[in-house]
Amino acid sequence: MEALIAIFVGWLTACGVYLMLRSRTFPVVLGLTLISYAANLFLFATGRLTTGQPPVIAKEAAGYADPLPQALVLTAIVIGFAMTAFVIVLALKARGDLGNDHVDGEEP
């Protein structure tokens, strides 16, 4: 499972970086979103991958699922969501103000 998660995080990051380097604002926004997904997934996995474990330490439990990364990732998702919304609005504003959707505001 670790390998699968690692591959997914890497794949998301690679796609995100590729899209970030595009010259149109919409792919850049998508790239940012993918990179933030990758970061969230990575953050989620830092508490180690466990299945069927209680989140709170109990005497009879064999182990526990670390609840802290889940709290962190929740915060990060909420913040990332707000940021993405902001970038989309800004990209639309740039499209309106500058008349095109190139990241530099003018066609090369």
Partner: peptide, 28 residues
């Protein structure tokens, strides 16, 4: 300022993603 703002926002959000990865690694 719209154009400069777009660059400012995108690069800072990329920085935020890196920050999360760094924090996650340290916690892990």
């Amino acid at each position: 300022i719209t154009r400069a703002g777009l660059h400012f926002v995108v690069i800072n959000l990329t920085g935020s993603a890196l920050f999360l990865v760094a924090v996650g690694t340290l916690y892990g």
